[in-house]
């Protein structure tokens, strides 16, 4: 299946990446994100330094884009066990438009 991977919210000037995976669409969407993490070498967590004795790991967030080009159209994926087939493919050429947030909104 085809994927449009939007850049992190912090890197909006970067290009959209186009990926393709052979994956069972009955699988939970977390399996698709696992593949993306592995292939693109995207860390699954961001470490936050609360003080010199405490580092807190906070996991990435996953978003799916609805059908317009703005970043406000991204919807948070709450249930990562939901089947891939249940998400709307709103990208070009019937692709799924996804974004992994690893920068914004993790502190306050």
């Amino acid at each position: 299946m085809k994927i449009e991977l939007y850049p992190d919210m912090d890197e909006r000037d970067n290009e959209i990446e186009y990926l393709e995976y052979d994956i069972d669409e009955n699988a939970p969407i977390k399996e698709l994100f696992d593949k993306i993490h592995e292939e693109k070498n995207i860390p699954r967590f961001k470490e936050f330094i609360l003080d010199e004795n405490q580092i807190e790991k906070i996991p990435c967030e996953y978003y799916i884009k609805s059908n317009d080009k703005s970043y406000s159209s991204f919807q948070f994926i709450d249930d990562l066990d939901q089947k891939i087939s249940e998400f709307q493919k709103n990208g070009n050429d019937n692709s799924l438009s996804l974004m992994i947030n690893q920068s914004i909104g993790f502190v306050n």
Binding site: F45, L50, K57, I58, P59, F106, N108
Partner: peptide, 12 residues
């Protein structure tokens, strides 16, 4: 995991 530092119970 906490969703953010704000969403934790830690001193902020």
């Amino acid at each position: 995991y906490f969703k953010s530092v704000a969403n934790s119970n830690y001193t902020f």
